[in-house]
């Protein structure tokens, strides 16, 4: 059970990191995060249905598709949060809220309420690790999560572009003064975030199920992880994601899956009360 929780946590980390990065760099709380997961899962589902093959090989393709989507939508978001608005942060919130309703409504209209699932060659297999047996799909999801996280970390901490992104997150105006094109950095971060989130949608779809209203769940999880980690503090997401996975399987086993959201909210409420900047006190 402990292992199970940790394995699910791996995937949640990927969603949370993009979300946190997005908030850190652009101060946008993206309400549409769950809808990116949902759209990613459906894209994977459609690709498998029309072209066959295993969904795993579509991961890079979906990443590119969603990068392009994020890049295309970013000018609108930039417009919503800049200019002569009374409260840019809130305008961004409302705009992404509108986007999420739009995506959810579109998906419901096109695909209805049916529940679908993706099967991969790993489905139903399991690994034996000493005394433990682990479902192979969960394990690969976890590996995927760790891999993406490591790649993102390397990108953020070792490349010039990554340093620019972190500088923008730290002090937007100063970065702008020193010659960073803040708008371009924002577009890059947003498309990266959309790509990673859409890609993880395939694995989430393979692990659980796909339906048009699934976004709400992953939106809650991403919010939870980011609040626990401290808004905008990327490394904290890893710990918070693992805690979330553990908490979920713990509640599922001992209290009952129906109380999942209640337990999540109680913990989130407690964290906001005691350490509003996240459990590591590093958020903004």
């Amino acid at each position: 059970m402990l292992i199970d929780g940790l394995l699910i946590g791996g995937l949640i980390i990927v969603v949370g990191i993009g979300f946190s990065l997005c908030f850190g760099v652009m101060h946008i709380v993206d309400f549409a995060v769950g809808e990116w997961v949902m759209l990613g899962a459906y894209t994977g589902f459609i690709l498998v249905r029309y072209f066959g093959h295993d969904p795993m090989i579509y991961l890079p393709l979906v990443f590119l598709i969603f990068c392009a989507l994020g890049w295309a939508i970013y000018p609108l978001i930039y417009r919503a949060v800049s200019g002569k608005r009374h409260n840019p942060v809130l305008m961004g919130l409302v705009f992404t809220f509108g986007l999420s309703i739009l995506a959810k409504g579109g998906a419901l209209s096109v695909w209805g309420y049916h529940i679908q699932s993706i099967t991969t060659w790993l489905s139903g297999k399991s690994l034996a690790l000493g005394p433990l047996t682990i479902p192979a799909l969960r394990f690969s999801g976890f590996l995927f999560g760790i891999l993406i996280t490591l790649l993102l970390m390397l990108f953020l901490y070792k490349t010039r572009l990554g340093i620019t992104i972190r500088a923008t997150a730290q002090d937007r105006e100063m970065a702008n003064l020193l010659g960073t094109d803040v708008r371009k950095v924002g577009a890059l971060v947003y498309s990266l975030y959309a790509g990673v989130t859409g890609m993880s949608g395939i694995l989430i779809g393979a692990l659980f199920s796909i339906h048009a209203a699934m976004g709400v769940k992953y939106c809650t999880l991403a919010f939870f992880v980011v609040v626990l980690a401290g808004m905008g503090y990327v490394p904290g997401v890893i710990i918070a994601g693992l805690i979330l996975g553990l908490l979920q399987s713990f509640v599922g086993v001992y209290i009952g899956g129906r109380y999942n959201l209640v337990a999540l909210f109680m913990v989130m409420y407690g964290v906001l009360l005691i350490t509003p900047k996240g459990i590591l006190r590093r958020g903004i």
């Binding site: 509108g98 999420s100 739009l102 959810k104 409504g105 579109g106 419901l108």
Partner: peptide, 9 residues
């Protein structure tokens, strides 16, 4: 829902 979302945006 599509109309509402588009209207908000």
């Amino acid at each position: 829902l599509v109309i509402i979302g588009a209207a908000i945006c």
